[in-house]
Design a binder for these strands. Structure first.
Length: 567
RNA sequence: UGGGGCGUGGCCAAGCGGCAAGGCACAGGGUUUUGGUCCCUGCAUUCGGAGGUUCGAAUCCUCCCGCCCCAGCCA
């Protein structure tokens, strides 16, 4: 496949790779990896990382592995590996036959550990975890050596073997690297390499009772797979000296670790812990709630893989902390869906319109364009009849300034149909509520153009009442009403900022009949409203459910808001 | 007050000694059978601050200020 790349914005990682390639480093190979721990669902922040590592591999004709970093059996589950596999492939990336697990390398890692012990660079320590913490010192004070630090190689070998054999209880011993307890970087103060855990692992079962720590394992995994550029987030920068140390001691293939800043989005929270809390306490319906920033949530909401990949390109790659405006994500779906989503007319908050001069039992089929941005999508027939629905927002008895939709006495266009003029407003006598409006139509304007050249200020979408499909539409909005839910000004918990209007369920929506057999997950533009998709979970034939992915840009709403602010 | 990292417009982000890309947002205008899309136009005399080097600095040097990360037998 040809990888046409419309001049991407440079970033520092890409620049490093270009330099490496120039120097002929790694024989010109570029090999990256995405190494999630299978302990939760992937979110948009992971998507950024995935796009970076797979994208770099693609761009430089390299490879990218998917590798589960499953070194902690107490936290990891198969359910997560399944969801991660689904999400990464949904995003559009292919690891071919290179799906790996850190646990596949446990034996090899053990051998490497034995080597370190033999070099006198690792020892079995019997300090408890509390003692280990005390011995580590603090940020400003050096630590002190473990009393077990100077055991003989033979003793260490024996003890380590017995650790593996299961002779010791959990937490009773660790294997530690012998580095420097006074090192200014705490990660270098004799870090733990192995801990004892009599836990069942999702892949290796009960084969092991000692499990490697991240710092020890990760570089080995990268090295074994021949990873050239090991890309991770900035909080691991402090770990790089240790990553390098292990590989140097072992004298094995040495990948280069490069760190970038993780993604933050305003109006949302990203941490696994916080997301989990939202799920567990029922603030959302689950990990795939369309308001969640998880990939499963975004997918259900109607975001496309293309839009997320494009978003990742837009936000770039750097090391500085930043908070990206969700407006960019929203822009990115609109841009994608604008080109692709078929247009359709749907009335979400119906107001009945009776065309009084239209024959009682007549109906006709009008031609509508499926996508003005892509004429190859063709046209369709839309039924028209005497009774229709229009949007409540499209009629105002007392229109404000600059409102140019339907008002008493005013003429507007019904898209692809006719010009209509409002002649009467029928209200409930007691409540004053508008029940329906009466209009007349001009038969000469069929299709939407007046032969006499008469213009109209607005075009409304509509649905024929007799033909309309009923549906439920879920209007999603940002989950939080403040840009930074964690910036608790007054010590409030982030949940205090949840947007009470993040979901509005509309039950009486009227859709154009062609939507009857819409595919699960299919995307549409409801003209003049936004992009919507068929909910994958709850929509059933005869009980349609749509999710609003994102509204269309709405300059009228802005004008109206500006006018309100003035008064 | 130990170590590591980072500071370019409202938000992202290029640039790495030659005189501030691009995108989002925002504001005007044009086109329009979506108040959508699209198309124009505007939007940092300035790059955290102060000195210095240089013909010339966002880019090099010095000092200062601010923000983030690290004391899991988590990743």
């Amino acid at each position: 496949m040809i990888n046409e790349k419309p001049e991407r914005t440079p970033n520092f990682i890409r620049n490093i790779i270009i330099e490496d390639l120039k120097k002929g480093k790694n024989d010109g190979r570029v090999h990256t990896r995405f190494p999630p721990e299978p302990n939760g669902y992937l979110h948009i922040g992971h998507a950024k990382a995935i796009c970076i590592v797979f994208g770099l591999a693609q761009e430089f004709n390299g490879l990218c592995n998917l590798r589960f970093d499953d070194t902690n059996p107490e936290k990891e589950e198969d359910e997560y590996v399944r969801s991660i596999i689904e999400d990464v492939s949904w995003l559009g990336f292919d690891w071919e036959d290179r799906l790996f697990y850190a646990s596949d390398y446990f034996e090899q890692m053990y051998e490497y550990a034995v080597q370190l012990i033999k070099k006198g660079k690792a020892y079995v320590c019997e300090l408890t975890s509390e003692e280990t913490r005390e011995y580590r010192g603090t940020l400003t004070q050096p630590g002190k050596n473990s009393p077990y630090r100077d055991r003989t190689v033979e003793e260490n070998l024996d003890l380590f073997e017995r650790m593996r054999a299961g002779e010791f209880p959990d937490g009773s011993r660790t294997l530690r690297a012998k580095i420097d307890m006074a090192h200014p970087n705490l990660n270098m103060r004799d870090p733990v390499m192995y801990r004892i855990m009599h836990a069942s692992h999702h892949r290796t079962g009960d084969k092991w009772c000692i499990y490697p720590m991240y710092d020890w394992a990760h570089g080995l995994e990268d090295s074994i797979e021949g990873i050239t550029h090991s890309i991770c987030t900035v909080e691991f920068e402090d770990h790089r000296p240790l990553y390098d140390w292990f590989l140097e001691q072992l004298d094995i293939f040495h990948p280069q670790q490069i760190e970038f800043a993780r993604l933050n989005l305003n109006y949302t929270v990203m941490s696994k812990r916080k997301l989990l809390e939202l799920v567990q306490k029922g603030y959302v319906s689950g990990w795939d709630d369309p308001r969640m920033p998880t990939l499963s949530g975004l997918r259900r909401r109607g975001f496309t893989p293309e839009s997320i990949r494009n978003f990742a390109d837009m936000i770039g790659v750097a090391k500085r902390d930043s908070i990206v405006d969700v407006a960019m994500l929203e822009y990115s779906v609109r841009e994608d869906l604008n080109k692709r989503a078929p247009r359709v007319m749907s009335v979400l908050k119906p107001l009945k319109v009776v065309i009084t001069n239209y024959p009682e039992n007549q109906e006709e089929e009008l031609d509508a364009i499926n996508n003005p941005e892509d004429l190859s999508q063709g046209t369709r027939k839309v039924p028209f009849s005497r009774e229709l629905y229009i949007e409540q927002d499209d009629f105002r008895e007392d229109p404000p300034k600059k409102y140019f939709r339907l008002t008493p006495g005013r003429e507007v266009r019904l898209r692809y149909a006719y010009f209509i003029k409002c002649t009467d407003v029928i209200k409930d006598e007691t409540t004053g509520e508008i029940k329906e409006i009466h209009c007349t139509y001009d038969p000469a304007t069929k299709g939407g153009d007046a032969p006499d050249g008469r213009k109209v200020k607005a075009t409304l979408h509509w649905v024929s009442a007799a033909h309309a499909l009923d549906a439920e539409v879920r209007m999603y909005d940002r989950l939080f009403e403040v840009p930074d839910p964690l910036g608790n000004k007054s010590g409030e918990d982030f949940k205090a900022y949840i947007n009470p209007n993040s979901l509005e369920v509309l039950k009486n929506c009227k859709l154009e009949p062609g939507l009857k057999d819409a595919d699960s997950g299919a995307h549409f533009q409801f003209e003049r409203l936004g992009y919507f998709c068929v909910d994958k979970v709850d929509s059933k034939p005869g009980n349609l459910v749509f999710n609003r992915t994102v509204p269309l840009r709405d300059s009228w709403a802005k004008i109206e808001k500006a006018m309100k602010n003035k008064s």
